[in-house]
Design a protein around this nucleic acid. Structure first.
Lengths: 148, 148
DNA sequence: TATTGTTATACTCTATAACTATA
DNA sequence: TATAGTTATAGAGTATAACAATA
């Protein structure tokens, strides 16, 4: 028999776990925003800069990754560009495309940002290696669930 | 000897777990925002309404819980009030205070909102009872870590 | 004097629609 | 025609500072 569609009301344990995840999410966000603020960045700017610290991306692609409209990306990149953290380059293959890329300074800031994320150290500090392995496995399985 | 302050660079496994948590956070947020949008609410409005569905709160207290300035709460409550989901009541004990409270309709919307949070069902659907118990334990221990 | 809530202001993020330059 | 990026616009969230009412 196939698994029935999951339309039942979640049980007590599930709700409890969902609430805990909500707490983790809140904690993660606070840490992320305050780490960004320490570098005079907004959350959106920090996320975009972090993406670009890995590789240059077309504006369109950035919008997809940030899950926002392309018109928003223009403004965020504008602000980062005016601070010298990001630059726009032409795409040799398609003259319509502009590639946004982190400058050297931008990569430096992105690196500092990553390292100042307290969340990376503190909440996990109470877990031993075995527990982190277990947590990793559980999170991986959760993320492997279909979108809908 | 006391445990040394945790200033070391996080190891590979920790970074991996942090990244997974980042993915979970992103997924949770998408779901939360889209559940809110289905009820024509913004994320901030949904969070505030959810708080008030439990108990009436002074504007000041709401700002603390939402971790924003009190002046912002005025606007969010204004918008919810204009839709009949929230109302302001005087506090008999202190005439400076205004208590924000969910209306009956507001509580109904908050309940729907909670139940339409897909995150409560799907990502956890792949985990059995034992795994959920393990996850709960791990998350609880993470949240028990000090703030700083 | 201190506190509560509000107003005024300015900035950022957001979506939508219209525009341009390329393809 | 279709696509990439931009501009214009309007609404919402945010912090800061100043204010009225109350403690």
């Amino acid at each position: 028999m196939a698994t029935p569609p999951n339309t039942r009301r979640p049980d007590e344990l599930t709700l409890e776990v969902v609430e805990l995840i909500g707490d983790i999410v809140a904690r993660y966000h606070e840490d992320y925003e305050s780490a960004a603020a320490e570098h005079s960045l907004t959350g959106a700017q920090a996320r975009l800069l972090s993406l670009l610290s890995l590789e240059p991306l077309p504006m369109r692609k950035l919008a997809q990754k940030l899950k926002c409209e392309p018109s928003n990306v223009t403004g965020i990149v504008d602000r980062l560009e005016s601070r010298g953290l990001v630059e726009r380059r032409p795409d040799p293959a398609d003259r319509r495309v502009k590639l946004a890329a982190a400058t050297q300074e931008g990569r430096r800031v992105a690196k500092n940002l990553r390292e100042s994320l307290r969340f990376a150290r503190e909440p996990l500090a109470g877990l031993g290696r075995e527990e982190r392995l277990a947590l990793r496995g559980l999170l991986q399985r959760m993320l492997r669930q279909p979108e809908s």
